[in-house]
Design a protein around this nucleic acid. Structure first.
Length: 571
DNA sequence: ACGTGATGACTCC
DNA sequence: TGGAGTCCCTCACG
């Protein structure tokens, strides 16, 4: 490109308008400010691409020039053009620093560095495994054989092949509990059973955990079923600053990330053990993975099972029998992994569409189970069989989540298309049951609702209208007052599990929620909406942790992502 | 009722 | 190494 920089022009000689126009057109220098708004690269008078660093450097030069009085003494060779140019550069620089472009570009560079996902846990399939080895083929023509008359198989009626595959379900009855990531016929590691049986003494629980677990231990050991008469022995609740300082101590490391299931995580749960971190995750294709941090069995402590065929949408360990894990799936089956019997027992079964459940009694024998068709069933596990439970139709469209009141367990909250309602399970009707209380104010579909863990005085909801709402349910009147509404991006789209705000079972007023922000983070908020902590880690947290859960007694939480990896932050 | 677009992580070429 | 393709009873909107 031709340069017409009027270097030789005397600085003090005024340029004619024609000359200035000419200079502007040819040098492009004066266009730079506009250009720079869109691109970090500018074009120099010589047509060379110039990067930000060059400009920075020039800027330093120009400031030096100004400082040293060069501007004042134009006799040192700086023309009016040159001065104008320097001024332009200075303005560019000021503009760029005002919008933090340098910082943003650095962050972008860092975030665009592709990180290798953790190779702990389940192994990704090797190319040899993926490529099916086929016998060498030779055409009939080359074999000098008559061509076969081929007819197409009959078209499946009404359903596509994919849809038929969706409807496949595991056979009825107990399923053997064989890990699919171990050699055929492998037994469960005996250490796992020992680990699951150990949830610590009730003394430990009294000091370490919230009272839910204390109660459970008491139920286990003394068989006291009357909940309300027990003394208020729950852990002394921390004040917010104490709690925040505990959060700050939690971190992640290489060993705390592992692939636990093969596909996107739909649900996850912590085992109540206070001595070991044991987690379960359910994925899109009916797999359930058990991961013990530091376990020396399976793949880095991961065992994989296949109790369902469709997304495992809800998982929870029994609080009374910690060797039992309940799971429920879109395929319509609900099962109980029993590590002592080493089977997946059937608990409940419908045609399809099971979505959510919660324990309705402290001994975990009765459950409220919800389907996406809008029905809830009260299931009593002590009764043999799987299909004679009482069924109630709440909402003809969708039911996303149910949550049972921790103290008054006859009440449960249900997130439906119209909003969140609280029902009394004793007075449900077959159709059109009247709610005890309504939680209004949601403008789009609601993905979850949970009673606060210790008192049930709050319900937290996560809604696709980008708000997390907290309602006061102290008095279950016809309409619960909205206490807080926190803006949070919930647009996970089609390929990620939906975000759900989850209470910390150890701290009544605080909750955790995944985030779509970059760099990836996980937020902890106080119910007032005050942000308490942001979990982040450049090295080990690089994906959206849609599914999150705090440990019931340890200072730890888990987060599951769209590729089946669990992440733990713990102290 | 139906079509469409947005969304993130991974795999394959 | 990077970019295209894939995932698949999503949800909201037009």
């Amino acid at each position: 490109m031709e340069t017409r920089r009027p270097k030789q022009q005397p600085a003090d000689k005024e340029m004619t308008p024609v000359q200035i126009e000419g200079v502007r057109k040819s040098s492009r220098e004066t266009l730079a400010p506009r250009r720079l708004r869109y691109s970090p690269a500018a074009v120099t008078p010589r047509g060379r691409k110039r990067n930000i660093k060059d400009i920075q450097h020039k800027e330093e030069d120009s400031s030096v020039a100004e400082d040293s009085g060069m501007k004042a003494t134009n006799g040192e060779g700086l023309s009016a053009y040159e001065l104008e140019r320097l001024e332009n550069i200075r303005q560019n620089q000021a503009f760029l620093s005002a919008i933090n472009l340098f910082q943003a570009s650095m962050e972008l560079k860092q975030s665009s560095v592709k990180q290798q996902p953790s190779q702990r846990g389940l192994r990704s399939r090797s190319p040899a495994e993926i490529k099916e080895v086929l016998p060498p083929r030779k055409s009939l023509r080359l074999q000098k054989k008559q061509a076969e008359l081929l007819t197409l198989p009959p078209e499946p009626r009404g359903t596509s092949v994919v849809k038929e595959a969706f409807q496949l379900k595991k056979p009825a009855g107990p399923l053997s509990m064989e890990p699919v990531n171990m050699a055929e016929g492998s037994k469960l590691p005996p250490q796992l059973l020992k680990l699951c049986s150990d949830v610590g003494s009730s003394q430990q629980c009294a000091t370490l955990t919230n009272y839910n677990y204390l109660i459970c231990n008491i139920i286990c050991q003394v068989h006291i079923f009357s909940y309300q008469v027990l003394p208020q022995e729950r852990r002394e609740e921390l004040n917010v600053s104490e709690y925040t300082s505990l959060l700050k101590k939690m971190n992640i490391s290489k060993v705390k990330v592992a692939k636990v299931v093969k596909d996107r995580i739909f649900s996850a749960a912590f085992h109540p053990s206070s001595t070991n971190l044991l987690m379960a995750a359910g994925d899109k294709w009916g797999k359930v993975g058990l991961w013990s941090l530091g376990g020396d069995w399976g793949d880095d402590g991961v065992l994989l099972f296949e109790p369902h065929t469709r997304p495992v949408s809800c998982l929870a360990f029994s609080r009374v029998h910690p060797t039992q894990l309940l799971s429920l799936s879109y395929d319509g089956s609900m099962r109980c992994m029993d590590m002592e019997k080493t089977v997946f027992d059937e608990v409940y079964d419908i045609k399809d569409g099971l979505k959510t459940f919660d324990f309705l009694s402290h001994d975990c024998s009765t459950l409220v189970v919800g389907s996406w068709h809008g029905d809830v069933a009260i299931v009593d596990r002590r009764t043999p069989g799987t299909s004679h439970e009482s069924l109630h139709s709440l909402d003809p469209k969708v039911l996303r989540c149910v949550s049972v009141h921790p103290l008054q367990q006859q009440y449960f909250a249900a997130a439906m298309s119209e909003g969140v309602n609280i029902y009394d399970s004793r007075s449900l009707k077959r159709h059109q049951s009247q709610p005890v209380c309504q939680l209004r104010g949601h403008s789009l579909s609601i993905s979850s609702c949970y009673f606060s863990p210790c008192t049930g005085n709050r319900v937290i909801t996560s809604c696709l209208d980008n708000h997390i709402r907290i309602y006061d349910t102290t008095a279950l009147t016809s309409e619960a007052p909205l206490l807080t509404s926190i803006r949070h991006n919930m647009q996970t789209g089609r390929w990620l599990s939906k975000l759900s705000a989850m209470w910390d079972p150890k701290q009544e007023n605080c909750f955790i929620v995944g985030s779509l922000s970059r760099p990836r983070i996980v937020n902890v908020f106080h119910e007032s909406g005050r942000p308490l902590h942001v979990f982040k880690d450049d090295e080990h947290l690089s994906t959206v942790l849609s599914v999150t859960a705090f440990h019931p007694c340890r200072n730890a939480f888990l987060g599951g992502n769209a590729s089946g990896r669990l992440h733990i932050f713990s102290d």
